[in-house]
Design a binder for these strands. Structure first.
Lengths: 223, 223
DNA sequence: ATCCTTGATTCGTGATGACATTCTTCCGCT
DNA sequence: AGCGGAAGAATGTCATCACGAATCAAGGAT
């Protein structure tokens, strides 16, 4: 007993700042291209500049933030090539995770994923976009965690953090309504143990969101 | 002209520290489990604690370093499960990158990869292990860069940084001699445009190294 | 009216210092 | 001799500050 206990990590200040920034990123509170100054965040969170600096450094390290203007960091503005690259990689890696998840499928997982799907459909009807975004993230994350690969899950999580600020702009569209069709297909495929169908449905889910996003971002520029 | 010019990034102090730490990691200068104190690095590099702290934070963020004892950070000691997880993910992601690279194959790439293979075989004969490790990294990196996916290349690069400190322990074995057989097979497959064969050879390359490493690390524990 | 220049402000980088926690060592107890 | 605790050293965390670079704004020149 107690051989494999990790030492308890106290929540350092910079960890809390990091988590809050991640939440804000997932909720689309950051406009791409807009600077995120240390002092503003520090003031808003009621902490000194130091832990904020550390949190921003971490987000910078995993590619979520980038230099946007000489000295300032912020969510980078993604061009068409970068968005497409992100999509291509996500398609491969996330569909891989789903295939692994189907292999590791068990009863507890099925129950949880059913519950999450139910909550997704509930939030869809209520029209609460923020809740839908949050639940959608939980749904996908739970899916990938079932791959039982911490490395893969972590990679995917950072990729999500990179696209979230941009994907959030889909809120004005009705993308989330068609998205649940794919979600249902994913869950059904998992119940049947059909890894190929599940990854197909996931790919359709990601691709649809990508299509809408690209159309929204670049339809005016091409004219 | 000059529309798409990125602002020139001066080499900040923490960037230089980060690069040097990465090099040291790839050269196996860090023993897993051993603490890497800020003050020691700062003194060794002749800088203050601040830039070192920032560099370590970045390495911590991408999972290369981890908490090893309450307060200290260092290269984490990897158990069998973690090594296997890393291998599984690397197998999938790196073979994917190679398949993409074959698709994007061009003359300049072929010339460069031929040159790198030649240098690999030269360093193999000279027995200069440090040079072999370095060239091996360049060979693989160049391979993955041809996937023309910055996201994928970056993911792979951090994965390499995570395993490098452990893989370096293979220096005492003669692993690098059989490794070049796989390298040659990879290059030949690329020349033929055979993506499947190339990824197969890459998988064999990674798997062999993994096998030797696992045997070395865990042969005594299982008795 | 537009562009350039210049001063003021903002902000990031790196340095230093105070404080709390952890690690280490050594001494005393059993 | 082995174990446990306490004092000292070492180290990470966070705050604050000095400095320089970048941004912004206002005023002057064309």
């Amino acid at each position: 007993m107690f051989e494999n206990q990790q030492p308890i990590q106290k929540d350092k200040l910079h960890d809390q700042v990091y988590d809050r920034l991640c939440t804000l990123l997932r909720e689309g509170e950051f406009t791409p291209g807009q600077a995120v100054p240390v002092s503003k965040v520090a003031k808003a969170f009621g902490v000194s500049a130091m832990p904020v600096r550390e949190a921003l450094t971490r987000l910078l390290a995993i590619g979520v933030l980038a230099n946007v203007s000489g000295r300032s960091v912020g969510v980078p503005v993604l061009g068409y090539d970068e968005l497409t690259d992100l999509r291509n990689v996500r398609l491969e890696i996330e569909s891989l995770a789903v295939r692994w998840a189907v292999k590791n499928c068990d009863k507890a997982f099925l129950a949880e994923i059913d519950d999450l799907l139910g909550r997704l459909e509930k939030t869809e009807q209520s029209g609460d976009i923020a809740a839908y975004i949050k639940t959608n993230y939980e749904f996908h994350l739970r899916l990938y965690q079932q791959s039982r690969s911490p490395v893969l899950t972590e990679v995917i999580d950072t990729l999500w953090l990179r696209v979230s600020p941009h994907l959030y702009q889909l809120e004005k569209e009705d993308q989330y309504k068609v998205s649940n069709i794919h979600h249902r297909k994913i869950v059904e495929s998992i119940h049947r143990g059909d890894a190929d169908a599940a990854s197909e449905a996931l790919i359709a889910d990601l691709s649809d969101a990508y299509e809408v996003l690209v159309r929204m971002l670049f339809q005016t520029e091409s004219t």
